[in-house]
Design a protein around this nucleic acid. Sequence first.
DNA 1: AGCACGCCGACT
DNA 2: GTCGGCGTGCTC
Length: 835
Amino acid sequence: MTDTLFSYTDAEEVTLFVDLVLPIPVPRLFTYRVKRDMAALIKIGARVIVPFGKSRVITAVVASLHNHPPQNYQARYVLELLDEYPLVTGYQLQLFAWMAEYYMCCIGEVMNVALPSGLKITSQSKVQYNPDFEHPDLLTPQEVTLMEDLKKHPSLSYEELGRLVGEVNVPTLIKSLVGKRAVIVFDEVKEKYVPKMVRKVRLHRNYEQPEQLLALLQRLDKLPKQQEVVMRYLRHVPMQRNPALNEQGLEKGILNQDDELSQSSLGTLVKNGVFETFELIQPRFSDTFSPQKEIVLTAAQRTASDSIMAEFAQKNIVLFHGITGSGKTEVYIDLIQKVLAGGSQVMYLLPEIALTTQIVVRLQKVFGDKMGIYHSKFSDNERVEVWKGVVSGQFQFVIGVRSAVFLPFDNLGLIIVDEEHETSYKQHDPAPRYHARDVAMMLAHWQQAKVLLGSATPSIETYYQAKQGRYGLVELFQRYGDANLPFISLINTKQEKKQKTMKNEFSSALYNALADNLERGEQSILFQNRRGYSPYLQCEDCEWTSQCLNCAVSLTYHQRAAELRCHYCGHKEDVPKVCPTCGSTKVRTVGYGTEKLEDQLQILFPAARIQRMDLDTTRAKNAYQQIISEFEHGNVDILVGTQMITKGLDFDNVSLVGIFDADRIIRWPEFRATERAFQMMTQVSGRAGRRADRQGRVLIQTSDPSQVVLQKIIDNDYLGLYDEEIVERRDFNYPPFSRLIKLTVRHTDQRVSKKAADVLCASLAAQLGDERVLGPEQPLVERIRNQFLYDILIKLEREKINFKAVKAFIQSCITDILTDKGLRAVSVIIDVDCL
DNA sequence: AGCACGCCGACT
DNA sequence: GTCGGCGTGCTC
């Protein structure tokens, strides 16, 4: 500014602007004005509420503060400042920006998956009564009446709230209520938190004083049943000594003790006004933890832990390669304790399925309420609590799934990525399509934290880095408690079919083994990685098969639900009684899903108790836990399941694992198929024989036992697998020797989709060269939800490539397509480091 | 992503 | 004559 003469007055008049991250898929920040009274309080990383577009109000995060008024438009005002202390750290903003750049998406898309929806108040969000609300005394009179309304309604929308309170500023009101933890905010789309209610009873006020109580008991002398109920109540609520205890009452269930007589007596007492019933919302955080348990490491575990520490002195990333059942968890606990004692934070990542199991319980016993759990099965409100707990310092240690990398850590000392090879660490559907393992490494790099990658079957990429010396490597090949590795054998189904010894698709070997196990009272697990009853229906008289209308896949037959389902778009239809084409009644099921296996096993072994575990049986809230505990308590003889059973289940009594169809796992049309097959089958095998006193057995059904990977699985020969795979990867320039970016072009008109893909491919290849650009090619499922898909795969060697520049070029090619008149309607999905 | 604006078909 | 279909374009 040239106008220095008046700068002393200007200094006070300068308008403050903020650049905000909005949860909107637009590749830029948005500038808003800040009113003077807010200017002193607003900070980078704080959330604000702003008006956006014609009729929306949304939550944004402050990315920067400045005083440059925008040139081409008038900035609008920030409506409300939500956080006096930022809920988003500088590291997180750095992470958001990095992810948007690296994974080629918008920073708003990153923010959208990063923040739990409870932290994003918008004009679309709803509020409900917080079951854990503790301080009604803080409310203003207006808020008190509003809370009464909220108690009556399950939830209120933004508009409804506005109508109820009249002229008051709704965002301000919500801010106030959220701040007092009186309400919780949730996303209408997602399922809201359903508070658990307890039914309680208490004595009527008239009987609270000792003399009144005594009179009551005397009056009930002639009614012994009712007298007994009152006595029982007094035993649990000793109000003779302290009448105030009556206020809290007693749970109805405890008083009733499930006998009908006391129930009817209680009913009479309630009717006569002696007792009154009321309901209370059960607080969720009422668990108590057992005291800290001492963890004693075995010699091998001790050595491993020490070696990891030693490696960390040299390297920032260490691969901990330990076979299944070697007791990696104890080693982790040891390391976590060390890092926490040093005052740093720890993040422990696990794939979704593994997190639901015993590991959490085990860690909770050690770390108690200092440990936060970040899991998708938890309600959004609980995620918000974990987030705030990390900011406040309550949680120095969090165990969580993929999305835990977004938590506001600022002082990480250690990140553990367990089951490092798991593909579920890569987010597939909404952008950002990030890999939590890689993001974790970035976070660690910024915060000078160490990363421990754990796996029994490391990904080829990771093992390569370890071999190259870029990562430290610690291996633990001794099974915990000297349990033996299972004995794995192959069953040639082709041969058995020739000899006619198969029972349906069960080989005699598998059948006999299952029968033996049943007889001995030992448990078995049968693995089949396909849910439903059968992958499709087929007419025997014509060519008809069940096909999805919207996708190029067959409809899977689900017998239990009595419907045909598309596993891609979710479309459901009734099962036809006759062939829809020719009217024939000979419609048969083809192929085997877990449901059919369950059925056939029941026919083969009528006395066996069989349980199925797949997506369909575990959808309900606690179904997963229930199945596991049933199995654990020996109430199940044979557990049939998909991938879900491969992880984290440690059961003593399982002595047999059957892999129903190995061929299907091996012959996946993908360059990682062999690696996957090895990982998957090794993991399932690990479920067998986790006890020292006998060796578990694994039977693998295959039509071709000579397949190389099978022998490697039998020999538990990870190194052999690695040596072969790495050669192929090098020869064909696949990861770790290259990076892959997959572009998927989508449109409802196949010709448009194809044209766009061709044009895109040509412009990419013109610059990058034919050998780096593959396709366009129709994916395995060429049409999903009536959109025709074409894939383009870009291979970029690690050396001598300016990754950033290439990505910018790719982006420009896509922009060209999307501005082309005839092709602009297509959408292009970008997947960096696709799996 | 939402949301409005805008320009063409089957309905009271 | 309108209601509403979803194509296109914009949001500080």
